[in-house]
């Protein structure tokens, strides 16, 4: 049964050559499928020089798209933050029948194609939708207007905060809150002074992912937006229009802003994970 040192290492870890090959193959795949597309965004954006880049980003339609994206994202993140806190509080601090079904339903938007996420609101609020005639009679525009874009974005990003907080709050149990309660704290005092500080990194993690998806959502927003320049175009839709007009340098210039946002998101995500947020801080630990 005795193994010499060399047999042991050769048996439970690959030889130096095999390691180098596997590492090279893995990194080559990553470079080809992830790094190259990322690099291409910046290369294409700057291909016509800095002046063209600056003009594309500062153009009024681009600025309007950036404004709309920020507005829609702010509303969607705020709504889903409140929802995530309410959902995780009820799921993690209490037991009730149908809890696992509720958790499954919260994750449901992740299983729905973005196009269908837009379609469902067209079916509800579109010209031929259930509430379409009523909305038109009252002069309220939802589809091909900002409210529709907000709704579609809210739908698509709904699970992010809740799915981060639920396992975190479940892992922390309800001991701290019960102690605070017996010491006379009110519900809101418990929430702000005990629970919120306990989950702050996980909360930020969920908000970060929610924000990234909200700013970059394309399919769902594309269906409900109507692509009206300067009015209902978000940044990703503006990129699409410029690209389809063969205005590649401008399309990639606006796209590069979104790529920078993605890189910033990844960097902050790594920082938050080092503080125990995210999958590593989940219920497995």
């Amino acid at each position: 049964m005795k193994l010499s040192g060399s047999t042991r290492s050769a048996a439970v870890s690959e030889g130096r050559f095999a390691r180098a090959c596997l590492l090279a193959l893995g990194l080559a795949f990553l470079a080809l499928f992830l790094l190259l597309p990322l690099a291409a965004v910046f290369a294409e954006a700057l291909s016509k020089g800095l002046a063209v880049y600056a003009a594309a980003v500062a153009e009024p339609d681009a600025v309007a798209a950036i404004r709309l994206t920020l507005l829609v994202t702010a509303i969607a993140v705020a709504c889903n933050l409140v929802f995530g806190l309410a959902a995780s509080w009820s799921v993690a601090k209490f037991s009730f029948p149908g809890k696992s079904l509720l958790v499954t339903l919260i994750d449901l938007p992740f299983s729905v194609s973005p196009v269908i996420s837009g379609l469902i609101y067209v079916l509800l609020f579109g010209a031929h939708g259930v509430f379409g005639p009523w909305l038109r009679a009252h002069g309220v525009e939802v589809i091909f207007a900002v409210p529709g874009i907000v709704l579609a974005t809210v739908f698509v990003t709904l699970p992010f905060v809740a799915r981060e907080l639920i396992p975190l709050m479940e892992a922390q149990g309800r001991g701290d809150e019960e102690v605070a309660r017996t010491l006379g704290a009110s519900g809101w005092q418990i929430f702000f002074r005990v629970t919120l500080p306990n989950v702050k990194w996980g909360l930020l993690y969920g908000v970060l992912l929610c924000n990234a998806r909200a700013m970059g959502e394309f399919g769902a927003v594309s269906v409900v937006s109507g692509h009206i320049r300067g009015l209902t175009n978000t940044m990703p839709l503006h990129v699409e229009i410029l690209y389809n007009e063969y205005n590649f340098a401008a399309a990639f210039a606006v796209a590069s802003l979104l790529a920078l946002l993605a890189l910033l998101t990844l960097a902050l995500k790594t920082v938050l994970e080092a503080r125990g947020a995210g999958p590593a801080g989940g219920p497995g630990h």
Binding site: L38, A40, V41, A212, G216, P236, A262, L263
Partner: peptide
């Protein structure tokens, strides 16, 4: 490299789409 693996989660799909098409 570990952080970069999540790029497709963070990069908007339309950006990935035009970049892949150009590549």
């Amino acid at each position: 490299v570990d952080a970069l693996v999540d790029l497709p989660f963070a990069l908007p799909t339309a950006v990935a789409g035009i970049s892949l098409a150009a590549l």
